[in-house]
Write a protein that binds this DNA or RNA. Structure first.
Lengths: 210, 210
DNA sequence: CGGCAAACTGTACCTAGGTACGATGCCCAA
DNA sequence: TTGGGCATCGTACCTAGGTACAGTTTGCCG
């Protein structure tokens, strides 16, 4: 478990209790408190920031600074009275997450993990509302299982899938319990069947890029 | 850490590799494989289920069974070729999550944790689309596009784009009127800036797969 | 039974891609 | 002026990936 390269957790809040709660979340992670907006510009790219909207300097949602912060940092907007409308605005300016600042520790930990891994986090209330919003107007076509599969055998599909996701031949071999040589054999026939030259072209085909 | 009361993880899939991958996620959690839809009705209320859409019996999204399964189970729909439209349909029938079945183990673990804690999980692609849908505006900013771009110089973006579309170093060189050596130089810095190891990983990042 | 496809493996080989050492000239801000 | 980022190029080197030319075993089908 790589614990040392966890990004520092920055907290912008005027509330002592908030700071204590959040810093107690993960003993292995460094936590730093921020009190003034001007400090944000000096944070290293990719830093993690929890932004408490209760902060006195919290700007309006159409303020341009939001975008620049969110561009260079991973920002979780946290409110003591969250609501869907504010959540949408927050995510809209580029936040990676929107949550209740007094959520239970397990949830907060989860939020941090999720955004650190590059995903986005919003609560179920907001998410269901978003889904309800679009579910009416859909091209009800469940995306036909594409043709590249049909040309391959079961085993070849497994190999193709793994290769298209960037796994090396060796990893694929271990994953499937076979030899690297056999993986190569499968790939050769896959390439020929699909008319591509290498695994990158395969990936583009599998992912519908080309 | 309460490890003993973790709900059993049920996997509906015909793919052996999928089963192995998922059961390897968490040694403390019991994993059970399901091969036939008829078994679903017999699962205990609140059970956790990962439903691989590649399964031969996978019903259409307007099938009533989806709702009844999702009502009594925590269902994560997993696709080997996820797309936003299918994701919306899946969440719409009541799924607690929608993800890539070949996502890396850390992500899968995260998905499971999130849905087990009662939240919903969808990938950033779908979520940003949902958010775009309600906010109306935002042409090409939503972080996914920008993120890798903004770390690169103009020239590097050109190279990255060509490489991510499967062009060889030589072709890129001719296209840009430079030497193959220079292309390599650009790629080396691109890889290091984006934290990837080769052009396939780059392609996956550029095309939003990983 | 014969034949054929699929899955699997071995050895040998070539090459594109990637890295490690360089190097040059340009531009711009401190 | 000097340092640093950017773009460009050279040579040498290593390796994963891909091919060629083998082979075995299994199971199915006419």
């Amino acid at each position: 478990m790589r614990r040392l390269d966890l990004p520092t957790l920055h907290i912008l809040s005027t509330d002592d209790a908030v700071f204590r709660r959040i810093s107690a979340l993960d003993a292995h992670r460094q936590t730093r408190r921020i009190t003034d907006l001007s400090e944000l510009a000096r944070l290293a790219d990719g830093s993690l920031l929890i932004f408490d909207t209760a902060h006195a300097q919290c700007p309006a949602w159409d303020d341009k600074r939001w975008r620049s912060w969110c561009d260079q940092l991973t920002v979780v907007v946290a409110s003591s009275e969250p609501n869907d409308a504010e959540g949408i605005l927050a995510m809209d300016v580029g936040a990676a997450g929107y949550c209740h600042i007094y959520a239970n520790p397990a949830t907060l930990r989860q939020v941090i993990e999720v955004v650190c891994s590059g995903e986005l986090w919003v609560g179920r209330s907001l998410l269901t509302r978003l889904l309800r919003g679009v579910s009416g107007k859909l091209p009800a076509a469940p995306a036909a299982r594409t043709h590249w599969r049909q040309q391959l055998t079961e085993r070849e599909i497994e190999v193709a899938q793994l290769a298209a996701h960037g796994e090396s031949n060796l990893v694929i071999a271990e994953q499937l319990g076979i030899t690297e040589r056999t993986v190569k054999a499968h790939l050769t026939t896959i390439f020929s069947k699909l008319g591509v030259t290498d695994r990158l072209q395969l990936a583009l085909k599998v992912h519908g890029v080309k």
